[in-house]
């Protein structure tokens, strides 16, 4: 005997991308075949083998923050996530009611370790060996910006989204590079199916354009210009179909299948995640359209890559289409999502 799983639908999309700080601007820029990849401006990258990036253009995030003071503990990825989440809620027409049943699951990477903040403390102790740990603990740490830690913690991204949108349901963070964003959408669907929440904000947010990330990417690609990183956030508002229909929401897509897999061989892991998602959707590969990854236009968005590409594809797909997005990280974690768009109205 099997139990029918409650259906999960997409009712809102929020995108902050290097091509624009909202879904509409990004779609227009894509239609005009624009690229956002150019010489980076956020830090001095001379000395690294890569000096290009796809940066999100400046935009005013303050309207998205209920408490302006929170901005000082919100780094770029948290700001993008809050903006994208707010857009998804507006897009879905979700009112302020019921926010205790609204949850958040986002994929992101470790944040910027903020070398200048650490160096500030180290510089205070220039006559002492900075590797003297007891000295570091007793003297140097007190010279470090007290906001340093909460600016770089990965779970602060979901926390800021929860606080600024008033979402008081389950709140979680997935770390797993490229795979994390789509995996967050699959996890959010499980939360909805379990009845723990009525609606979930799910997706990914990244801002890897900083010295710490450049250092780690350079180590992975010694002496080579590594793939151009980009920044942004893609967030879906997912709801149980019954709740969405009950409030008369416009249904943008139905979540037909989700899959995750891990394997030492990333390509094999991705293949298995895709197969799982397709099996759950009851579809064959040929019956779906692969979501384009867009990294040649908006850079590598890591955990945000899958959700941003999937959100843009959802907004642009033909009625009745089945779209498939997948991602794999170098650690071998992978994830896939299949969405079905509503057919033409009879």
């Amino acid at each position: 005997m099997t139990f029918a799983r409650p259906r999960v639908v997409v009712t809102g999309l929020g995108v902050v991308s290097p091509l624009g700080a909202d879904l509409g601007t990004t779609l227009s820029a894509l239609a005009e075949r624009r690229t956002a990849i150019r010489e980076l401006t956020l830090f001095d990258a001379r000395g690294f083998a890569q000096t290009l990036a796809a940066e999100v253009p400046d935009f005013d995030v303050r309207p998205f923050f209920r408490t302006p003071k929170a901005l000082k503990t919100a780094d770029r990825r948290a700001r993008f996530a809050v903006a994208a989440a707010a857009q998804a809620l507006v897009h879905a027409g979700l009112t302020e009611d019921g926010r205790e049943e609204l949850g958040v699951i986002l994929g992101t990477a470790g944040g910027d370790l903020r070398f200048p903040d650490l160096l500030h403390g180290l510089r205070r102790a220039s006559t002492t060996d900075p590797l003297d740990l007891p000295h570091f603990a007793s003297q140097i740490l007190s010279g470090t910006n007290p906001l340093w830690l909460i600016l770089c913690l990965p779970n602060m991204v979901s926390a800021h989204v929860g606080i600024q949108t008033g979402a008081q349901g389950p709140n979680n963070t997935l770390m797993g590079d490229e795979a994390a964003g789509l995996a967050a959408i699959g996890e959010a669907a499980l939360v909805l199916e379990s009845g723990e929440a009525r609606a979930m904000l799910a997706g990914g947010a990244e801002s890897p354009v900083h010295a710490h990330s450049w250092a780690s990417l350079q180590q992975q690609n010694p002496g080579l210009p590594f793939p151009v990183p980009g920044e942004g956030a893609g967030i879906f508002l997912l709801e149980l179909e019954a709740s969405a229909r009950a409030r008369g929401a416009r249904i943008l897509a139905t979540l037909l299948g989700a899959g995750t897999a891990a394997d030492g061989d990333a390509a094999r892991a991705e293949e298995r995640a895709v197969r799982t998602a397709l099996d759950r959707a009851g579809l064959k590969d040929a019956e779906t359209t692969r979501v384009p990854r867009l990294s040649d236009r908006i850079g590598h968005l890591f955990a945000a890559a899958g959700p941003v590409a999937l959100a843009l594809a959802t907004a642009g797909a033909a009625p009745g289409a089945h779209i498939l997005a997948s991602a794999a990280s170098i650690s071998g974690m992978s994830s896939a999502i299949v969405l079905g768009l509503p057919g033409k109205e009879p």
């Binding site: 408490t67 910006n145 007290p146 909460i150």
Partner: peptide, 13 residues
């Protein structure tokens, strides 16, 4: 003025 404990640390810094 809505300060939290972390703000007192931030202010001292």
């Amino acid at each position: 003025l809505g300060a939290e404990s972390i703000d007192i640390l931030d202010l001292a810094f």
